[in-house]
């Protein structure tokens, strides 16, 4: 822009002249890049942003020329670094956070859920099969319960405990364990850990995710069979539905996401494994976020409502209403208007 070539400069060698003509522009670009990095592109004035873009393109040209004509190492290194810095600030992400969350909820999450219906179905099948197996095994021999159930999860419940004790756990009127503390405790309970493992382990060729979900189903089936055995099947159903509909679906969805990653590793098709994993990750990560949202909702239900709502049918109503709410979101959200 402001090249000053005086007669005495013409005595310089070509690359030194090249530098002298453009140095002022480079300095200005340096200033602009620093400003953009410090305050963000959004807060720069119009002239600054316009100059940043055009000076950046000039600098890339300068770099390309300098690589051909100059042997000055200092100049080459400077231009390289300057162009790289300018490139990084010109191509910075320019998205507003509010729009991001809104778009995820209204569009991309339900669309991703619909696209991966097959994997989610696999997840549900996995857990369903596990539950069926656990149920049948318990009916065959009650001591299977001890094989499946981790003792800290059973909380003293088992084939040996009395029906009255089982009923007292289901209809427990103890308010001491509700509120924020209980919410936090439930969020980091067994099921959340299972969900994270199921998703993360999916990358290792599906099998670990499949096995873990199946095992979780086994626990559920054996536990349910124990209560059916004592005539408490419907009561346990209510106790579980209030948060379980949400929580167990979250595990199945996480399993679906994990399987999607595993399938990309197992059957990459025409892509490389890395590329296939990257493509599968697009939907899988949305599934994981949906599962996380559902787990937080389940912890809220469990921490605040499970012990305060004592009526069995109200429990069913709340649990399944929330469940259908999720379903409606996944089925109806993000469809293009006709």
């Amino acid at each position: 822009m402001n090249a000053r070539v005086t007669p005495q400069d013409s005595a310089l060698i070509r690359s030194a002249r090249f530098r002298k003509e453009r140095e002022a522009d480079w300095r200005r670009l340096e200033d602009l890049v620093e400003k953009a990095e410090k305050n963000g592109l959004q807060n720069m004035d119009f002239a600054g942003t316009r100059d940043l873009a055009s000076l950046y393109r000039q600098a890339t040209t300068s770099l390309a020329i300098a690589r051909e004509i100059s042997l000055d190492k200092a100049l080459l290194e400077y231009l390289e670094a300057l162009t790289a810095r300018a490139y990084l600030s010109v191509y910075a992400p320019q998205e507003r956070l509010g729009g991001l969350v809104g778009r995820f909820i209204t569009k991309s999450a339900p669309q991703a859920m619909r696209r991966s219906w097959f994997y989610i179905l696999l997840g549900f099948l996995c857990m369903g099969l596990g539950a069926l197996a656990g149920y049948l095994l318990y009916l065959e021999n009650a001591s299977w319960f001890y094989v499946f159930m981790p003792p800290e999860m059973a909380g003293g419940r088992g084939p040996d405990s009395t029906t009255a004790f089982l009923r007292s756990v289901i209809y427990d009127d103890d308010h001491s364990s509700s509120g924020l503390g209980a919410f936090a405790t439930y969020l980091f309970s067994h099921n959340t850990r299972i969900a994270i493992f199921v998703f993360g382990l999916g990358v290792f060729a599906c099998a670990p995710a499949f096995l873990l979900t199946f095992y979780n189903g086994l626990i559920l089936g054996a536990f349910y069979a124990l209560h059916v055995d004592r005539g408490l099947g419907w009561d346990l159903g209510g106790w579980l539905s209030i948060h379980g509909v949400t929580e167990l679906s979250a595990i199945c969805i996480a399993c679906g996401g994990g399987m999607q990653l595993g399938m990309a590793v197992l059957f990459p098709g025409r892509n490389t494994r890395k590329e296939a994993l990257r493509l599968a990750g697009k939907d899988a990560v949305k599934l994981a976020i949906v599962a996380a949202i559902m787990l937080v909702a389940a912890a809220i239900l469990e921490g605040f409502f499970r012990q305060t709502v004592q009526d069995m049918w109200t429990r069913y109503l709340i649990g399944w209403t929330v469940g259908f709410g999720w379903l409606a979101w996944f089925m109806l959200g993000g469809r293009a208007r006709q």
Binding site: L12, A16, W26, D72, Y78, R85, L88
Partner: peptide
Amino acid sequence: LPQPILLKDLAGEAK
């Protein structure tokens, strides 16, 4: 992150 530092031109100052 590269640091752009422009050292002076040896050929420019020698004359």
